[in-house]
Each structure stands twice: as C-alpha cells, then as structure tokens.
Design a protein around this nucleic acid. Structure first.
Length: 952
RNA sequence: GCGGAGGUAGCCAAGUGGUCAAAGGCGGCAGCCUCAAGAGCUGCUCUCGCAGGAGUUCGAGGGUUCAAGUCCCUUCCUCCGCACCA
C-alpha cells in the first residue's frame, strides 16, 4: 500500500473490483434477506449534498447489514414523471438566462451540452447517466441491474396496473377541488408562478343564506356557529352590488364577489345591479333561527372579502359590536328606520372563561377601542376568536348544539347547514391580492370531474395507522409526525393535464400525478431484473396480478402474455423472497407526502405481511450555514464533492456531522480536517502493516486497547442499529483513533495488527475503499463481504482499564502540579493509597449494594475493626468523602472496584518508564503504607485510584 | 393559527438525575520537529490559584430532589411543514 493517501486511485480500483466481482448483485438464497430502498432522485438536476447524505445513509446501512450476514438488496431508479422536467426543457429551449446560469454554474453542466438539449427525453437521459456515474463514484453498493426510469414504457404498464387496481377497489373517485387559478392564462398557478401572495392559502368560508323576500343575501363567515347570535346584517352603502341567478336562486352580492363566483362550480348569471343604499333598512330572515333582522350600514364591510355582505354578531365579534355602537344617535330615517339601533339587544351564544356574557364588548372595553375604524379592532377580533375557539362552549341559545366546544362543532355544523340547503362553501385567499407572473389577479377555481385518491376514507386511514403502529420509525420521536399527518391528510387529486407520466387507463385525457406513481415502485425493482425478457405490451394486468399479488394462475398468465412460464414463476418467487421493504430511508421533506402515500398504497394493495417494516428519516444539508437551493444556489454537487475530497472523506464527513433529523452543515474547513484524519488513519495503518511481526505476550496496555476496542464495537453496532451514523463514526473512527494514539504513546505494539484488522471492518461501511485497500494488505476476501466485528466479552478487561485510568490521571496530576509550581522537577515521588483506605472503600461499596450505606452504619462497622483503630482520627473525614463519592457510582464501576484484584503499585510500576519519559524526570513509587521517602508527609493524601504526589 | 423540532463554552456539537467544568471536532495558544514555512506530533484552551484546589456556568425565571444541563411549571427566542408541487 502506498504511504501517500490517493483517494481517487484507491476508489476507482475498488469500484472496478466490486463491479467485476458482481458482489452487489444479490439473488434470492437461503440467507435472511434485507431490502433497503431510498427514494429515487428526481431528474431535473444533478445530485447534490442533500442526496449525498440520504443515499450514503442508505449505503452504510446496506453495507452494515451485508456484513452482518444478510442478503442485501439495495436498488436504485430515477424519477422523471411530472411537470418540472417539461418546464426545464422549455426554459432551455428559450435560452432563459437564469436557467442557463443555474444549470451551467450550479449544476455544472457544460454549455455545449445544455445547448444540445432539445427534449425532455434528453434531459432524462443526461441526468440519469450523470446520477448513476455520481453514485458509482462515491461507492454505493447498488445493484445497478435493476435501474429504471419512471418514463420507461415497462414502468408505465406497472403504473397502469396499479391504478386499475386502485380504481377497482374504489380508492380512486371523482370530485371537484379548489385551485389557485389565473383567469388570464386559464391555468392553475403553482408556487413559482406567483408574483405576489405566495404565502396565501385557500380558506373555506361558510356562506349562510339570509332571505330577503325571494332573494338570498349570502354572508361569508369563518364562524358559522355564531349564526345563532345574528342581530342584523351589514351592508356598505357606498358599494355596488349585483343581482345574480346562482343555480336556481336569486343572490345579491358585491360586484367583486360576483367575479369570484364565476369560477366556482355554480352556474352564475348576472341579472342587474343593486346599490347598497337600496338594501339598508330592509329586514331579512335568519335561515337558522327564523328571526327577522335589519340590514344596517357599515363602512368596514369590504366588497373584496367574501360576498360583500356581512352577518352581525355583536356579542362575539368586536367589529359588529363597534359598528352597532357607532350608529348610536345616527339618523337612519331615510332607510325607514326610526328606532335607535344601537340598543338592539346582543345575543350571547358562547361561554368562555376569560370574558363575561358579551366577549366582544369586554374586549372592546379592555383594549379601549374607539370605533370600527380603530386599527386595534383587528387585534380584538383575533383575541376573541382565539379564546372562543379554544375555550368556548356553546350555550342554550344554540339549541341542540348547546354544550359543544366551539373547536369541535365547526365541521358538524357546516355539514348540517349545507345539507339543509341554507349554507354553502365559499373559498377565499388568506391574503389578497394573489398576483400571477403574467400580472393578472388570481382567483380560486373549482376544477370539476377531477380524479382523487380517496385518502380521507376512515377505513383506509385506519389501516395505515395499523401499519404504522407495527413499523419501526427512526428516530422514534417522529412517529407522532406521521400520526398527525395521517389524520390531516385529505383526498388528493391524482391526475393532471400537463407533464410526463402514465395516462389514467380509464380516462386517457388525464396524466397520473407523479406522487401517485411512486408509491409501490419498490416492487418494480424485483421485476426490473427481468426487463430484457419481455416487451412492454406483454406486461398486462394479469401479469402483475400474479407476480405481485399472487392472484391468478401462472400458466394462464404465461399463455395470455406470452412470457415464459418459468420467468413468471421466478418473478413471483423473487417477490415472495424480497418483499416487504425492510427499510425506507429518506429526507424529512417526504414525510407529509411521499412517505405517507407509500404507506397508504401499500396497505391498500398488499396483504399485511408485505407492509413496510421501517422508515428512517434524515435532515437536510446546508453549505457553510446557508440553506442549499437547487434553483438559486448555493449548491454542492455529489460529483464535485467526490472530485475534490474523494468518496471516503465525503461519506465519512457528511454522516459524522449530524444525526437523524438534524440538518448537517457542510463546511469546507471541517471537511479538510476530516481528510487529514483519514490520511492519519491511512498512515497509522501503513505503520502497523510495515512494523513487521511483533508477536509477544500481551502486556497491560495491550489488554487495555483490546478492551477499549470492545467498547467501541459495542457502541458502534448499537449506533448503527439505530441508524445513528454520527455516533457510529465517533466511536468507530475518532474515539478509536484517540485510543490508538494513547496506545502508541504508551509504547503498545503487540495488539496493533489485531486492532487494525477489526478497525477496518468496523469503519468499512463508512469508508469502504480505503478499508478494502488496507484489507488487501492484510489478506483475505473483500472487506465489504467480511463479517462485521462483534464484541468479544473475554477481551473486556476492567483491571486494565482501571490501571490505565490511574496512570493517565496520575500523569495529569503531576503535569498540573509542575505547571503550577513552574519548576523543572528533579524528583517525582508517587504514593499509592494505604490499605486501610482501600478497605474503607470496599466496605462502603458493599453497604451501598445492600442499600445500608450511611455514615452511622459505616462508622460503627469500622470502629469495631481492630486494624482500623490506629487510623481512628482520619477515618470520619475519609468515610464522609467515600460516601459522597459512591453516591454517583454505577453498579458496573462498583463491581470493578470490588472485584479488582489489581494493585495500583504494580500498574504504576508498569507505567513507570512511561511516566518518567513524559515528565522528563525519574519516578519513584511507594505505598503510603510504608513510604521510604516522604519529607513533606504527602503520602497521607493518597486515595484509592488517586495516588499522592511529591515533587522536588 | 395548527403541528413539530430546538436554544450547552469563541464556533459546530454530544449529553440515560449522581466521576459533568460537561465527549468529539473546528478555531486559538504553547512546546517538539524543521534552516524556515507547511504538515505531523504533544499539551493547554470558563475564572482565579507557585501542590493536584476553589468559584461561577448549560436561553431566562421559579420549583421538585440528599443531588438537575438532565424532571415539573412559567416565560422569551430560533427553525421547519401546512398540499395537489416534486
């Protein structure tokens, strides 16, 4: 092996050898299988540091499991369906300057290649080739025979089967759903199409239909329960209203509301105009309570919001309360109203602990709000809403709903009102305006006859919950995220007009949405191994029914598809061997979407024994503290990281800098440091390999390093079992490195080769190339295929560990004293604990184990011991200290101290030369029982495990 | 608003109620090596201390306990997701 670390040479060599030996191309055999998958990358850019982290975690787990003896299947494919690739081609064809810059500079694509791209096929082709090369260059142990792309014709057959299956099971239904819509482009707008109002969400208001003779005045509200407390309606006298024919009803709304209604699923026809003035003073009937209330004027009514007509609940809505109060003494005779409307009695319907009967009034008083134009009115509204929503309970006013909490009644009530025909849903943006890139104001449009995956169906959710509860979720604390998201998930539109993908088999104008086509594709890796055996057209539904579901008869399937029957049977038996997925490991961004759908589709399609076993989640990667961005930068590609630092360093670094869902920060300075550590590792290995045969008897320090090694193995395997890569690297690499440094410094040598042999296996999942290179020198088969180290309990040597602890602590103490007295020592004398102190300690430990340790018991035991008598004066103080020390000891340490037959003097004597070398002075060691030389009586400070020191 | 994560030394970051003044790394300082620089190696790196000691720390404020970075309550701050988009 070369002295100098040349990662690229080593890495290419071993990648070639692995490929030639086909060691990562598993077939079913009699071993236990382990099927690990990582979500395939989407091909609208090059793989970056985020992929590097997620995929490397997968590779480390794959390699670890393989070394544990599992037959590991770790496949990879490419995702290309959906709209982004189509959009990218358009931009490239347009030579959009920003796109060209981003893809040339950030994604590192040469301009001549960018210029040559003319189609989405070329994009897919280019990025899939690049991705595969990148993944090979970092040494992933992927079975590349099984790769595919989601736009492959074979794959489309698989998706077609899946959707036919789901459709037959009533998992795909039709419906309508609201989308952000640009009336100018006549298209739904996505986030990146939005100029202003990107954060706006779609809120569903309830539209309550108040009746005015034959007309309907719909009032939009977020608080439909307050309909029981309506005292009047509000109309802004200054705005124009319109009369509409909506389905079979006559509506009056603001002109602005009419513009919005046009895009809903209602049939809307304009019939005429109505001024606000005209409406005021009329009486409408409340469709819920039947009461008749006035329409009154209010300036706060915004025609842009809702229907432009507002129902007034002054007991619970500060604006309503204020507007009513503002009318005090106003002359409304021109509207035909002669009474003082500000004296209309409030109607309370929610009881909440923070307020009295009329929360809106209390809030207005509390915040000292002047009138409806006071900006603080908004604050009061939010406050009352929040308190009533969370703590409010409906009163008798609400009839059969009395006693319900506000938070719980909402959905029930909306459902009731709509089914009675007295309410409707009305969608509105949470922020206005929302402006499209083209400059037009966006609206909310109901897309009708849309296909949905019926995720909201309770029995489906129940199945998913059952699946989840049987799964291992790593790290465990994110299980609650999954539970919440399952609960929150609604029906999902699963078809689109644009983009790449597979057509909905029964309604070909639609393309299957790309999150839906990537839910059970792990099964396809098993089929992908046989793709050269058949044409796409042969993959009829009955083929998948049999191979994936076990339904049907293989002979009939072979007959109808023309596929060889042995192949059909073989795929089925492969499926039975490899499935289910043992681990799906992914970035945390996929929790609320892909991973959820992954579970939903598995439970919908497969029997329980094929449900996924585990999910592991990891965080993102930032660059020098900055968030990475594919479209804006900064960006670090996998390719360039490997080119600059090598595969092993990149792998080691990115997995050692953060754990689980924490984000990892890529810092070049730290990566450089990691490279130095790897170089040092290589140098240590070289030294060991070149040091010749140093057989010999194991000394204390040799037993120490072997014992330490066992702890590192234990910690590393424990960490890897929990996919704690950072902890694993700490133990398998850095801490063991420090152990080895101490070992070398202490003059150890005999156990070096034994340690190295284990060490390269321990760290091999992280830096497989260098470990293979070192392993080759030692001899034997691929390290990648060797057995992972296991703890050898017989090598754990507590005596050696304690002895070494005494030695290093003593050295630290000596050095500290030297530093303090600032003298070059001429003579260093060490006194080990007198035997009586050791005896006290032992007795105390025994009492502690009996739970009988206290000062009284200990003292009475000691006083009755004749041999202790001569130390009677010192005993109480020492005993007190011992008791305090023991409080914090764990059982293991106490046992070692008890069982320890090790003699501090002999341990220190073994380290005598070493200590002398370190402090450059001769060392003398005595027992405090009988020190030969003790001019200052320092020996009386000697304690067990803590010798006294005298320096001249 | 809802849901989730988190605040630890100059920085990143570990931390199961008791060997925690707190792992590991980075940065910094000193020594060795070298003609020198770099690399490498060794030590130090909260404050004070010419004998191994003492004092004050884990966002802030309370509390439980013989014992709290770790448990409980209150409070402040930061980050992430909320969809039809991969």
């Amino acid at each position: 092996m070369k002295e100098r670390y040349n990662p690229h040479e080593i890495e290419e060599k071993w990648q070639r050898k692995w490929a030639e030996a086909r060691i990562f191309q598993p077939e079913p055999d009699n071993r236990e299988k382990y099927f690990i998958t990582i979500p395939y990358p989407y091909l609208n850019g090059n793989l970056h540091a985020g992929h590097t982290r997620t995929f490397t975690i997968g590779d480390v787990v794959a390699r670890y499991k393989r070394m544990l003896g599992f037959n590991v299947l770790f496949p990879m494919g490419f995702h290309a369906t959906g709209t982004p690739i189509v959009g990218l081609v358009e931009q490239i064809l347009k030579k959009d300057p920003e796109t060209m810059r981003v893809y040339n500079k950030l994604h590192e694509i040469p301009l001549e290649i960018l210029d040559s791209i003319k189609s989405s096929e070329q994009i897919v082709e280019y990025f899939s080739r690049e991705a595969e090369a990148a993944m090979k260059s970092i040494g992933f142990s992927i079975d590349w025979r099984r790769k595919f792309t989601t736009t492959d014709p074979h794959y489309k057959k698989f998706i077609t089967w899946q959707f036919n299956f789901l459709h037959a099971k009533n998992k795909v239904i039709t419906g309508a759903h609201p989308v952000r819509w640009c009336p100018n482009d006549e298209n739904p707008v996505e986030d990146h199409d939005i100029l202003k109002g990107e954060d706006a969400t779609i809120i569903d208001y309830t539209l309550i239909k108040f009746k005015l003779n034959g007309d309907i005045l719909p009032c939009a509200t977020l608080r439909p329960e307050t309909v029981f407390g309506v005292t009047n309606l509000w109309v802004n006298p200054g705005i124009l209203h319109v009369r509409l024919r909506v389905n079979n009803e006559n509506w009056i709304v603001s002109k602005e509301a009419y513009e919005k209604l046009k895009f809903t699923d209602k049939k809307v026809e304009l019939q005429g105009e109505v001024s606000g003035e005209e409406l005021i003073g009329k009486k409408v009937s409340n469709p819920v309570t039947g009461s008749h209330v006035y329409i009154l004027p209010a300036s706060f009514v915004n025609p842009d919001n809702g229907s432009g007509i507002v129902m007034s609940v002054p007991a619970h809505a500060p604006y309503d309360y204020l507007a009513l109060r503002d009318l005090k003494g106003a002359d409304l005779t021109r509207y035909g109203i002669t009474r003082d409307v500000s004296r209309i009695p409030l109607i309370s319907l929610i009881k909440v602990s923070e307020y009295g009967k009329y929360p809106a009034m209390d809030a207005v008083i509390e915040l000292k709000i002047k009138d409806q134009n006071d900006p603080k009115a908004i604050e009061a509204t939010k406050l009352v809403y929040r308190r009533e929503f969370h703590g409010g309970v409906l009163t008798e006013t609400t009839g059969k709903y009395a006693g319900w909490s506000v938070a719980k009644i909402k959905d029930v009530l909306i459902h009731d009102l709509i089914s009675q025909g007295i309410a409707d849903v009305f969608y509105e943006f949470s922020e206005q305006p929302v402006i499209c890139r083209c400059g037009a104001t966006c609206v909310i449009k109901m897309v009708e006859n849309q296909w949905f995956l019926n995720y909201s169906e309770p029995s489906w959710k129940e199945q998913v919950c059952k699946c989840l509860s049987g799964m291992q979720i790593i790290p465990p604390e994110i299980r609650v995220d999954f539970e919440n998201k399952i609960d929150w998930l609604k029906d999902k539109a699963c078809a689109r007009r644009k983009g790449l993908g597979t057509r909905l088999p029964w309604d070909k104008q639609w393309m299957i949405e790309s999150l839906g086509d990537s839910t059970i594709y792990m099964t396809y890796y098993i089929i992908a191994n046989y793709l050269d055996k058949f044409e796409p057209d042969q993959l009829r539904d009955e083929f998948f029914d049999y191979c994936l579901m076990g339904n049907g008869d293989p002979e009939i399937v072979a007959g109808s598809t023309g596929i060889n029957i042995d192949i059909v049977k073989s795929i089925r038996s492969d499926f039975e061997y490899w499935y289910p997925v043992d681990l799906r490991s992914s970035g945390k961004d996929l929790i609320p979407n892909h991973l959820l759908f992954f579970l939903f589709h598995h439970v919908a399609i497969f029997p329980e024994k094929y449900w996924p076993r585990a999910i592991a989640i990891n965080g993102f990667v930032s660059l020098e503290g900055q968030k990475m961005s594919k479209s804006k930068g900064p960006l670090l590609t996998l390719k360039s990281a490997v080119k600059e630092f090598g595969a092993d360093v990149t792998r080691l670094y990115i997995l050692s800098t953060a754990e689980h869902i924490q984000d990892a920060d890529w810092r070049t300075a730290d990566v450089d440091a990691t490279r130095k550590q790897v170089e040092r590792f290589q140098k240590i290995a070289c030294d060991i390999l070149n040091s010749g045969n140093n057989n010999g008897e194991l000394k204390l320090i040799d037993r120490w390093i072997l014992s330490k090694l066992q702890h590192r193995i234990k910690e590393t395997t424990d960490a890897l079992n929990k996919i704690q890569t950072r902890r694993a690297v700490q133990n398998a690499f850095y801490l063991l490195m420090n152990d080895m440094k101490w070992y070398e410094r202490r003059g150890g040598g005999v156990a070096r080769k034994q340690v190295l042999d284990t060490w390269i296996k321990l760290i091999a999942p992280f830096m497989p190339h260098l470990c293979e290179e070192i392993g080759e020198e030692i001899g034997g088969n691929f390290i990648s295929l060797s057995s992972y180290p296991r703890v050898n309990a017989s090598l754990i040597d507590k005596n050696a560990e304690l002895a070494e602890e005494v030695t290093s602590n003593t050295l630290k103490d000596i050095e500290e004293i030297i530093r303090l007295i600032r003298l070059k020592p001429k003579r260093v004398v060490i006194y080990t604990s007198p035997s009586w102190k050791r005896e006290v300690l032992k007795r105390a430990i025994i009492m502690k184990k009996d739970k009988s340790l206290d000062m009284k018991n200990l003292m009475s035991a000691l006083i009755s011991d004749k041999t202790m008598k001569i130390h009677a004066k010192e005993i109480p103080k020492f005993a007190q200290k011992v008791i305090a020390d023991i409080q914090g000891m764990d059982d293991e340490l106490m046992n070692s101290l008890l069982d320890m037959d090790f003699n501090e003097i002999s341990a220190l004597n073994e380290a005598k030369q070493f200590l002398g070398r370190e402090v450059e002075c001769n060392i003398e060691i005595y027992s405090a029982d009988s020190p030969e030389y003790d001019p200052q009586g320092k020996s009386r400070f000697a304690l067990p495990m803590r010798p006294a020191i005298y320096i001249e």
